[in-house]
């Protein structure tokens, strides 16, 4: 989009932490917009879904009744942008009676402690 695409080959580890439900507030949608733009910068990108953020990638979202756009299919397109490191918090899933089978994308389910280690390794953590 702009001329700052070229950053002299610097590759940093970027993590996007998604903590909010997909509807009710715009955080999830606008956070996904950041991730899609970030893909163009060829950085090392990973996403975490935790707390109510696990609902963002839940199967079977029907939003006609609330007149909001169902943007959940976009998460499936992340693979095409070479964004394949998706992590989900095990405790957050269980607290909501969900399992990996309820999710529309392939993810790695990790316990909170393992997610902490993962966060420690990052250069940049954006939390939405």
């Amino acid at each position: 989009m702009e001329d700052e695409m070229m950053e002299g080959g610097v590759v940093k580890k970027f993590m996007y932490v998604n903590r909010k439900a997909p509807y009710g507030t715009i955080y999830a949608l606008e956070s996904l917009e950041v991730v899609l733009i970030a893909a163009a910068f060829e950085q090392d990108v990973s996403l975490i879904f935790m707390d109510d953020g696990v609902f963002q990638i839940k199967k079977g979202q029907k939003t006609d009744g609330v007149d909001m756009k169902n943007f959940s299919p976009t998460y499936r397109a992340l693979e095409m942008y070479d964004i394949e490191k998706l992590y989900v918090c095990k405790e957050s899933l269980e607290a909501r009676g969900m399992s990996e089978d309820d999710l529309i994308v392939d993810v790695e389910v990790l316990e909170r402690a393992a997610l902490q280690d993962l966060m420690d390794e990052q250069d940049v953590v954006f939390s939405f």
Binding site: V10, E33, V34, I37, A38, A40, F126, S127
Partner: peptide
């Protein structure tokens, strides 16, 4: 006013990015 690329660029260029939310 500019694009989201400016945020990513800040992430690449800066020693630290601090989120206030």
């Amino acid at each position: 006013i500019s694009g989201l690329g400016q945020l990513i660029e800040a992430g690449i260029q800066c020693d630290r990015v601090v989120v206030f939310g």
